[in-house]
Design a protein around this nucleic acid. Structure first.
Length: 723
DNA sequence: TTTGATATTTTTTTT
DNA sequence: AAATATCAAA
């Protein structure tokens, strides 16, 4: 195998095949290349059979890419390597073994909307107020527990206080409902695989023997459950290679535990450790900026990436009047650069999906092609979810969650009242909705409704029969025809229904693609649904030409010649929610680091003087992350501007929207602007960090030294200006 | 039961 | 601004 193009550390990482290995791979240090070569090296030089190699990646797209790149290095056999995400691997394992845990092998996988409806059902049944108990936080609670491998019983035992106890009980109900439906949520995939391994040692041993060489990419973003899973699998051979960069840990909110990578050497004292600090991606200016920003994090092992590339152009700072102006400025720069670069080389990164709108609008107006990652996801569209629910019900009629979604879609006169009765029956007897329908005559449902239910029942049974000998595409067509779904849309003939039909058409290209690779069989529908449940946003990035739009989170692992980072304002990025929590602020800064290090040649940093948020105009200070970049690396905005500048001097585009004054005057005639130091009668000294709203309801965000941030009405707050 | 109208809430980030 | 929840009328 030719390793002549590798540096010394990279070679060592590839050739250290036996025993535990920790690769600390900085951004752009050729980590993917090392991983692919290592796998190829194992097969070619060490003659390890492909099926004994496991490689876990963060996204399905990364998995596909890794498989392709290994294929390019070796003659054949790459298709036998296990390359997948944690979740996809667990689905595969559970699919053939979950019956040990009492679930059906044909289990379905819940998406977040399904989870929400399960939780809401539980709240309703327990007569709890949905406003007091936000389903979101309950789902978060359950997810946290599962990621920590805490079962409902243990959660209840360890609960402290009323809320903990209550949520543990809800967790218990939730888990029971899922079990009854043979449904798993994302976290279950990991947790139940571990449970399976602990319960059935022979199954564990089988996989331990199979996975003799294990690789885990993005190890800094694994959670506790994933960590345990890897530990179990690697226990026999201890050939475990993890790759990660603690500076790029950005998924704490999802349970990622950075100590997994920091303590790797404690778990495996014999581990070899290799650091890759040579960056091959970014120009020196970009790298210097990234190093300077991340250097502000205190909780980290110091390290600095090196590059042999020259300085390159300076980073470019852009200030616009509003988010619309920001979009226009981005477009202007894209057009300037489009002579030397392809649109594919450019990406716009933002903190929240909602920020994509203004950018999209500007791109559409200028006829610039773009592709968006995430956002309103294709598979989240109503018609797609409806269709998927039909498929789920056909595959597993006892999937109540899917069943409830389609029971009255299209409208067939089976309303909430009837559904309640069916569910009520289920609570007493343990029957699913599907089973309850067969009893519907005896449980107080009107004759009228019973007939309708029977019709539905017959139609579904009929579809189920058909599904056994049809391709998925054919089945989709049958479902759309038999249910009258397509008819309904065609009859409506509105702009919206047209687009829905287009989306369904688009879905058929997905199924056709799937049918091409899969033979018709009993398992076909199940395989299709499993695959679908695991597709992630990042998987959608394809070859079509265009500027890429995505969140900074979604950009991890990718690189582009030109990067635009937008919305660099306090309260946007860093997000308002974390501004005063040092720990979370450090995670936010790592996110900035990830964003910065995506760029190879050019980097644009953009902010707007004010922008619309929740339908209100807000004015925010420039992001601290901007200020952390040494000014000599940046051109554009005068780098050393301690506070935003008054009035219209930054309306770069004369066609831009009229700028609102960011100086406001209160009832006593005192005027304030962002950055002013003020004195409050009760809270003491503070600094104005933002201005919200319009007219009489204008509010000031003020950071007080004593009490942190407060939002006060400009007209009534007892404020005096200092200095 | 379904529908349309009005009130209320919501945004981090995601496999 | 947009999505969701709640309420009133048909």
């Amino acid at each position: 195998m030719d390793l002549s193009l590798m540096n010394k550390e990279q070679k060592r990482a590839i050739q250290t095949t036996e025993g535990p290995l920790l690769i600390m791979a900085g951004a752009g240090s050729g980590k993917t290349r090392v991983l692919t070569h290592r796998v190829a090296y194992l097969m070619q030089e060490k003659e390890v059979p492909a099926r004994n190699i496991l490689a876990i990646t963060f996204t399905n797209k990364a998995a596909r890419e890794m498989r392709d790149r290994v294929s390019a290095l070796i003659r054949n056999g790459a298709s036998d390597i296990w390359v997948s995400t944690f979740h996809a691997m667990c689905v595969r394992i559970l699919r053939s073994n979950i019956n040990y845990l009492g679930y059906e092998n044909s289990f379905s996988i819940l998406d977040p909307t399904d989870q929400r409806s399960v939780v809401k059902d539980i709240l309703k049944r327990r007569n709890l107020d949905i406003k007091q108990h936000n389903p979101r936080s309950i789902i978060g609670f359950i997810s946290d527990r599962k990621n920590s491998l805490i079962r409902p019983k243990q959660s209840a035992e360890e609960a402290e206080g009323y809320l903990d106890t209550l949520y543990s009980e809800i967790y218990h109900d939730y888990q029971q409902i899922l079990y009854r439906n043979s449904a798993l949520d994302f976290d279950d995939l990991i947790m139940l695989t571990i449970e399976l391994f602990e319960k059935e040692k022979t199954v564990l041993e089988r996989y331990q023997n199979l996975f003799q060489y294990i690789h885990v990419d993005e190890y800094q973003d694994t959670n506790h459950a994933q960590y345990q899973l890897v530990k179990l699998l690697a226990a026999k051979y201890r050939n475990i290679c993890v790759v990660g960069d603690s500076d790029q840990s950005i998924y704490k909110f999802r349970g990622a535990d950075i100590t997994n990578i920091l303590n790797f050497e404690d778990d495996y004292p014999e581990a070899a450790v290799i650091k890759l600090e040579q960056n091959y991606r970014s120009s020196k200016n970009i790298l210097d900026a990234a190093n300077a920003v991340i250097g502000n994090n205190t909780e980290r092992k110091p390290k600095a990436l090196r590059t042999d590339r020259d300085g390159g152009p300076k980073l470019h700072s852009i200030v616009s009047a509003s988010e619309r102006g920001e979009g226009q400025e981005i477009v202007r720069n894209i057009q300037d650069l489009s002579s030397g670069y392809s649109y594919n080389d450019m990406a716009v990164l933002y903190r929240t999906n909602a920020q994509s709108r203004a950018i999209e609008d500007a791109l559409v107006k200028s006829n610039i092609p773009y592709k968006m990652v995430g956002g309103m996801k294709f598979y989240d569209r109503m018609e797609i979810k409806d269709l998927m629910s039909y498929m789920k019900v056909i595959q597993n009629p006892n999937d109540d969650i899917a069943f409830e979604r389609i029971i009255n879609v299209p409208k067939r006169g089976i309303g909430p009242k009837t559904v309640d009765k069916l569910k009520e029956h289920g609570v007493h007897t343990g029957a699913s909705i599907y089973e309850a329908i067969k009893e519907s005559d005896f449980i107080g449902i009107s004759k009228n409704a019973v007939v309708k239910l029977m019709n539905l029942n017959d139609m579904l049974d009929n579809l189920k029969q058909k599904s056994k000998y049809m391709s998925v595409t054919e089945l989709v067509d049958e479902v759309l025809a038999d249910t009258g779904y397509l008819d309904l849309l065609e009859k409506e003939n509105s702009l919206e229904s047209r687009s829905r039909i287009e989306n369904l058409e688009e879905f058929r290209t997905v199924t056709r693609e799937f049918d091409k690779d899969n033979e018709v069989s009993d398992e076909l529908l199940f395989t299709f649904l499993s695959d679908m449940a695991l597709v992630s946003d990042q998987d959608g990035v394809d070859e079509d030409s265009g500027v890429t739009l995505m969140t900074m989170h979604a950009s991890k692992g990718l690189e582009f010649k030109i990067i635009f980072i937008v919305g660099l304002e306090e309260g946007i990025f860093p997000s308002r929610r974390v501004m005063f929590d040092d720990k979370e602020l450090e995670e936010e800064r790592r996110l900035m680091y990830v964003a910065l290090t995506r760029a190879e040649d050019r980097l644009f940093l953009s902010r707007a003087d004010s922008r619309m948020i929740y339908g209100k105009t807000e004015t925010n200070m420039r992001s601290r992350f901007l200020s952390e970049i040494p000014e000599e690396l940046v051109e554009g905005e005068a780098a050393d501007t301690p506070k935003p500048i008054a009035s219209d001097s930054f309306t770069m585009n004369s066609r831009g929207p009229k700028k609102k004054s960011r100086v406001i005057t209160n009832n006593s005639g005192v005027s304030f602007t962002v950055g002013d130091k003020v004195e409050h009668r009760k809270f003491g000294e503070g600094i104005i960090s933002g201005i919200k709203g319009e007219g009489d309801s204008q509010e000031l965000d003020i950071i007080f030294t004593t009490v942190g941030v407060k939002r006060l009405l400009a007209n009534f707050a007892p404020l005096t200006k200092k200095e």
